[in-house]
Design a protein around this nucleic acid. Structure first.
Length: 817
DNA sequence: ATATACACGGATCCCCTATTTCC
DNA sequence: GGAAATAGGGGATCCGTGTA
């Protein structure tokens, strides 16, 4: 039968010793389709240089005869072919060795200890990745397909019958079809349980949210039942009801927030307790859990998406939110937040509070659903670019994404894939000392007027492309016609013959530029997502080459990238100064300088003239013009602080970097005060308004007019309490939480304040109190350790001594006499 | 285990010396 | 008078969080 098909989820199974891929997706009418297919499995044996034809022929015969008994499974080499290929940019002869089953390739590869063979590669991609490369059936792309319908047949053990799909097809041919808009069926869910520890409490209720179903399922009966609530008998029937709804709604995506780590493991644990089968899969199977760094939960045929993980890798670095909680993320992206409901054990909830609890639960699913809608374009673009299943792409870190992109684009370069590093190799790489990184200019503290800021577009990426820096272009010995630079305490050389990694990166940067321009013309979510995905990919590429787990790790390339970048920025600084500007600051890829008597037009023209001289794809762009900027001294010593400055543009928009204002481990009050002072100072160009403001606020603090919430300090617990060598205030606060049986773990944001104590205590940690503890904020601590430090260095620029100002002593420093 | 290095700054840790306390 | 305890100064280290 012929139909259209968009693959959404990929899985595989073995049948009669062979591997088959099982794709679940839809046709353009929205029917659910399962497609079964197979592909040849093979790996590569790269031959040593200069092996004669006869020797190669003999070797091929020997390899072709390999038979193995792997744990009782008999297997053999099916076929051997000789190919001209590339490996790490070098032309090589390689044997393409075909096996019956993907799982056997590793064993066959280790059997190949012939002296003619230099390397064995391509057996560690995973069958799904191998299949997508081999048959070019990419996720979230529409195809016109043809094949035999096996929905009712007994083929492959009756797979067609056992699956809850409209059609099951054994693929015979496929062709990429033109783009058709795909709107997935999405079901968001959220559970509420009596205990935060997985499986230790009852699941009191759970909510489901999709376009036409908005429900809370619960066994808690109340006097008045809101229409969206559905009663069940008990927890066991709640679980059964959930399974039933998932089956009925049959979503493409089941979406939760932190559901890999909480909701789904919880459901599993409770289902086990009640001996209920959580048959969520299209084949009635239960979710499978994979333990990695973080547990992931997979459902057969339905893509389980944990939004938290995706937001973490794809968005967190550009977000304002201090945490990635559902509440804060919703606030930032949806302008909506969680309903107000304070967690308490169900036995303590009063009759009239239940309705609020139900609403709260339903609203969480609603937020999750809307967040999915918001991020769907991004997930779609990521998936299309990396060409890996949505399930993986939404969980992978950026290094894996970069690597997937490389792996799926190697064929164009005729490249054999490099292997994953071994455990020992990873160990060696990790033991390498860090190499020299970016250049940061030491600023002279002061208030400056009329500034311009330039920066390099995709700085590190452009450097990698321009100087061809990668594992495959790295030269072990000096070569005359090469790119070279001092790095790692020696001179490193890179070929001028374009390597596949820089070439790929060149395309990424080009596309990023193109999409960014399209976006400027017309803003739409898909374009924005596409532009963002390429930006992230370009940015992560530098880190990837220095990441110990990468297949294409190359320390020399990483160190050389940083070295060339330093060289470029220093040259640019030199040229800007030569043109008569005064450079104030520079960090990695940006330069701030005074325009002096030059006009913005002159500066823009100067930028163009600079760009004409830059090598390769290196390019400077204008980041902006600013009417004022402030740089301060370090707290220790009187040299200028790096990575700490504030700018204001003509429209009075602030750009604050590094100051306490942007740091979540400072109390809100100190941050607010600093922000106000910065704004006033940059607005007016003097300190007068700030002095009045400060005096007033200090008075308020001293007379305890300020609510305690303003003094809360938030610090993240980064590891288990027992691993801390230094017992800092937040560790004490965490211990207190533990005593109150509030669940904490690595990653929990600890909130506390510093309180007055009866006896004077020397250590700050002895004054730590949790919000729920009674107490008063410690006036001396907050003035001395939060308020003064936050404004001291700013006021110092105007020769004002903050400490004296706040203590109410004399107001000018000695410098004024 | 899951991109890199550079940087700030608070708080504690730890060693040293001087002073106090104790017998 | 001499040993042990304590205080406090200051650099080293730990730690979290930023910038790019």
């Amino acid at each position: 039968m012929k139909t259209t098909f968009i693959p959404i989820d990929y899985d595989y199974f073995d049948f009669e010793g062979r591997n088959y891929i099982k794709m679940i997706g839809r046709n353009k009418e929205g029917k659910r389709v399962c497609v079964i297919d197979s592909c040849p499995v093979y790996f590569w044996a790269v031959l040593k240089e200069g092996i004669s034809k006869e020797k190669t022929k003999l070797l091929m015969e020997k390899v072709g005869k390999i038979k193995l008994d792997v744990k009782g499974r008999f297997t053999k080499v099916e076929k051997v072919e000789l190919h001209d290929k590339k490996f790490l940019g070098k032309s090589v002869k390689a044997l393409k060795i075909f096996a019956t089953n993907y799982k056997d390739m590793h064993d066959i590869a280790s059997e190949l200890d012939f002296s003619e063979i230099e390397k064995r590669r391509g057996y560690d991609l995973g069958f799904i990745t191998h299949y997508i490369i081999e048959k070019k059936l990419k996720p979230l792309q529409f195809y016109e397909i043809d094949g035999e319908e096996i929905s009712e047949s007994l083929e492959f053990g009756g797979i067609g019958k056992s699956l809850n799909v409209n059609f099951c097809i054994k693929l015979s041919s496929h062709k990429e079809s033109k783009e058709i808009k795909f709107v997935p069926k999405v079901l968001a869910y959220d559970i509420e349980a009596d205990d935060f520890k997985i499986g230790e409490g009852e699941i009191i209720m759970m909510s489901l949210f999709t376009d036409n179903v908005k429900k809370v399922i619960t066994f808690k009966k109340t006097n008045e039942k809101p229409e969206y609530v559905e009663y069940v008998k008990d927890e066991k029937t709640l679980l059964e009801k959930f399974t039933e709804y998932v089956k009925k709604i049959s979503p493409d995506f089941l979406v939760g927030y932190f559901s890999d780590g909480f909701d789904l493991p919880y459901l599993k644990s409770r289902a086990e307790k009640h001996k209920v089968k959580l048959a969520l899969g299209l084949d009635e199977s239960q979710p499978r859990f994979f333990k990695g760094a973080l547990t992931t939960a997979k459902i057969q045929g339905i893509v389980h998406v944990d939004l938290l993980k995706f937001i973490q890798t794809a968005y967190s670095q550009y977000m304002q939110s201090e945490t990635l909680s559902l509440n804060e993320v919703s606030k930032e992206f949806l302008g909506d937040e969680k309903k107000d409901f304070k967690f308490q054990h169900s036995s303590k909830i009063k009759e009239h509070e239940w309705e609020k609890y139900f609403e709260y639960n339903l609203h969480d699913s609603s937020l999750t659903y809307r967040l999915f809608e918001k991020f769907w374009p991004d997930m779609q673009e990521f998936t299309k670019i990396m060409q890996e299943p949505v399930f993986d792409v939404t969980r992978n870190g950026m290094s894996k994404n970069v690597e997937d992109f490389i792996i799926h684009n190697l064929e164009r370069f005729d490249e054999i894939p490099e292997k994953r590093p071994t455990h020992d190799e990873i160990g060696d790489r990790r033991r390498q000392p860090p190499f020299e990184g970016a250049f940061v200019f030491e600023p002279t503290p002061g208030l400056y007027e009329n500034l311009a800021v330039f920066d390099f577009t995709s700085s590190y990426g452009s450097v990698i492309v321009t100087f061809n820096l990668s594992k495959s272009t790295f030269l072990n010995k000096p070569e005359k016609n090469s790119y070279n630079i001092e790095a790692l305490g020696k001179k490193v050389y890179f070929s001028k013959e374009p390597g596949f990694f820089p070439e790929m990166l060149k395309e990424i940067i080009k596309k990023r530029k193109q999409f960014k321009e399209e976006l400027k013309k017309e803003d739409d979510p898909v374009k924005r997502a596409r532009s963002n995905a390429f930006k992230l990919l370009a940015n992560a590429s530098y880190g990837y080459q220095s990441f110990f787990g990468g297949r294409y790790y190359c320390e020399e390339a990483g160190a050389a990238t940083a070295a060339f970048a330093r060289q470029s920025i220093k040259e640019a600084i030199g040229n800007i100064e030569k043109a008569g500007y005064k450079v104030i600051y520079s960090d990695t890829d940006s330069i701030a300088f005074l325009q002096g008597d030059k006009t913005q037009k002159q500066t823009t023209e100067f930028l163009s003239s600079l760009n004409e001289k830059l090598p390769g794809i290196m390019e400077l762009e204008l980041e902006g013009f600013f009417k004022r900027g402030i740089w301060v001294t370090k707290r220790t010593g009187d040299i200028g602080a790096k990575k700490k400055y504030a700018l204001i543009d003509e429209k009075n928009r602030l750009k604050i970097r590094g100051f306490e204002t942007v740091r979540r481990d400072w109390c809100k009050l100190a941050r607010e005060i600093q922000n106000n002072v910065l704004r006033q100072v940059l607005n007016d160009g003097d300190e007068k308004a700030s002095l009045d403001y400060l005096k007033k606020i200090v008075k308020k603090i001293k007379s305890r007019e300020i609510p305690r919430e303003e003094f809360v300090i938030k610090t993240q617990l980064k590891k288990p309490i027992s691993e801390y060598k230094a017992i800092s205030p937040h560790v004490i606060a965490a211990k207190k939480m533990q005593e109150l049986e509030i669940p904490i773990s690595a990653g929990t944001l600890i909130e506390f304040y510093i309180a007055e104590t009866r006896e004077s205590k020397k250590l700050v940690r002895d004054k730590v109190k949790l919000l729920q503890e009674k107490g008063e904020y410690n006036i001396e601590y907050y003035l001395k350790h939060q308020i003064i430090p936050a404004v001291e260095n700013i006021l110092q620029v105007f020769n004002i001594n903050a400490e004296e100002l706040i203590d109410g002593k004399k107001q000018k420093t000695l410098g004024d006499f």
